[in-house]
Nucleic acid binder design. Sequence first.
DNA 1: CATCATAGCGACGCTGAGTTGCCAAGTTGC
DNA 2: GCAACTTGGCAACTCAGCGTCGCTATGATG
Lengths: 199, 199
Amino acid sequence: MPRIAAPTVKEHRDRQHEAILDAVGSILAEEGYDGLELAAVGERVGLARTSLYRYAHHKDELVAQWLERAFGPAMAEAEAVLGGSGPPADRLAAWLDGQLDFAARPRDGAAARLMAEFDHLPEPIQALVIDGHRPLRDALAATVDEALADRPTRDPALVLALIDGIAAAATRQAAGGVSPKLRRETRNAVVGLLHGGGT
Amino acid sequence: MPRIAAPTVKEHRDRQHEAILDAVGSILAEEGYDGLELAAVGERVGLARTSLYRYAHHKDELVAQWLERAFGPAMAEAEAVLGGSGPPADRLAAWLDGQLDFAARPRDGAAARLMAEFDHLPEPIQALVIDGHRPLRDALAATVDEALADRPTRDPALVLALIDGIAAAATRQAAGGVSPKLRRETRNAVVGLLHGGGT
DNA sequence: CATCATAGCGACGCTGAGTTGCCAAGTTGC
DNA sequence: GCAACTTGGCAACTCAGCGTCGCTATGATG
């Protein structure tokens, strides 16, 4: 155990782990997923590339850990917003507002970017993350169901998919900053999607 | 020039090229972009892996060629639809209809899948293809501008981005078949996005 | 028929992920 | 306080996949 810079080994390990995930995040923000190389991660932390395998079994696991750390709190909050009280359309709009804020926070730029590109990530990562997302997906679906409860001709699953598309597009836009216009257009788009609709 | 199975060399080359792009397409459909390996492409065509470099400088160029072949006609048609006559909202709806039909054609499943995820493809591919897409993007933007011409408070760029998101989400849904409901929900979503809006 | 152009291929080099065995430095039990 | 144990770190290795190079065989060209 060479070079320990913390009171205890356990603590040292925690710090290193944090530093590694920080490096992963910043590289993801700068280079994107395809530009993420373990050698670069190690270099930023001051570790040999192979030492990273003490903290994760695979490169993708490192990314998954980082996603968990980055998304965990925001997802919990989003779930709370969706599960709150008030008209479902308002809750959805509030959720979207939160998404935009999250995407706009510079520190979480990488997170937002990956969220927007989720479909393109390698299968294993999707699989690793999808479980963490399930509660949020369920909350979203439930809220859309509720919003459309008295509109039997609407198709909640499709509406949910379209809201998803809007949210993804808006999130991408928000990476460059959240303007009032963006907030308004997005909110109107979602609310319109719920209220508009067919016969 | 060993083993030629066509009247002329030129023709032989064309056939090989077609066969290679076919192989690229089928592998893309089966394995996705990340699962595309030149060795597999070569094997399907009956060529050594390295021989593929006679037809493209890089792996990504092969993908770009395939995209061009796959999207070219559909893009031209989409451009024509958008540039047609009638209310701009109707033209956008018609364009979306075409997108859904295209995505639902089994033979073009891989193309539709990649189109839906275009934004998430690796940078080099985007760069290679983006030029081919520009006319369509321009036509889309122009149509949205036209649709919002008498609504000075709206933001055409943002609306376009959101329509994009809806189109992508709908295209993904359409890969599993186009139901009347999907068609209706999608159309309403886009039209609502144009007509709804702020103050 | 001599020359040229080029499809195809095998050998090679490079990069980046993952494995293995060793060492050094904390931790633990007596 | 020392011996046994644990574990972070690392260098050397393997492996997969992309791209390059030089040669050969064969069709085109005059």
